[in-house]
Computed example of a mutant assay.
Amino acid sequence: MIDTERLVLRPYEVRDRPAILSHVADAEVMRFLVALPTEADVDAAIARQNGYQRDHGYCFWSVEERTSGAFVGVCGLKPGALGTPVEGAVEIGWRFGRDHWGCGFAREAAAATLDWGFANLPVDRIGAITILPNTRSWGLMERIGMLRDHAADFDHPILPDDSPFKRHITYWKTRS
């Protein structure tokens, strides 16, 4: 568990499922992701993240607001996606509900996640990937001290060639 001034990052619990389903049903939240997931997709994602937590000690954790206990999003670490420049590295990622945009929660959670990763994992750098139109995401990467690796821009291997999400950009944060 990671505690910040306003947030708690923790492994998924059964009580998170309804909030996650509501969160991923918002087309604006999911705008730069491949598709709106089904309930089965969400269950598989939760199981996958719980497996990362079990096997690696980290995952994309549930993020809850400390005072209310409300689910506000997900943020954490996972093994880097296969066939991408972050394969074999640790990847940071996040997604927050629209009601929580502009509150600084994503920055607070991501900075704490990077700090946790460098304090607890034997890695020299942590990566992140997104698409160029997702300015909020790569803007956050820059605000938390990540640097774009232009030489590592790539076409995501799991996406069809005609997908508007095919081309990705890569950022890294190096241990200080």
Rank of each mutant, 00 (worst) to 15 (best):
V42Q: 02
L77I: 10
R95H: 11
Y58S: 08
G69W: 03
A40I: 07
Q53M: 15
F71L: 09
V74H: 09
D43K: 01
V74M: 13
A106M: 13
R95F: 03
G83A: 11
A35T: 15
H100W: 15
W94F: 15
V86C: 01
D43Y: 01
H56L: 05
D43H: 07
F32Y: 15
N50K: 15
Q49I: 07
R95T: 14
G76M: 06
Q49E: 14
W94T: 12
D99R: 13
W94D: 02
R98Q: 12
R54D: 05
G57M: 04
G51T: 11
E91L: 06
W94L: 14
F71N: 01
V34T: 13
C103G: 08
T38G: 05
R66N: 03
G57C: 03
D99P: 04
D41Q: 06
K78S: 09
Q49D: 15
E39D: 14
A89Q: 14
V74C: 14
E64V: 14
E87C: 13
C75F: 08
E87Q: 12
I46S: 09
G102C: 12
L33C: 05
L77C: 11
V86A: 08
V72C: 03
F71M: 11
V72D: 00
D43F: 01
F32H: 09
G51N: 13
A81Y: 12
I92P: 09
K78M: 13
G57A: 15
G57F: 10
V72S: 03
L36V: 13
F105G: 01
E64A: 08
R66C: 10
V42R: 02
F96Y: 01
F32T: 06
W101I: 05
G69Y: 10
L82T: 14
F105P: 00
P79N: 02
A89K: 14
E91Y: 04
G57I: 09
C103F: 14
G69R: 02
G97P: 02
R107W: 07
A70D: 15
G102L: 00
G57E: 05
Y52F: 14
T84D: 10
E108D: 08
A47L: 05
G97K: 04
F96D: 00
G104Y: 00
V90T: 05
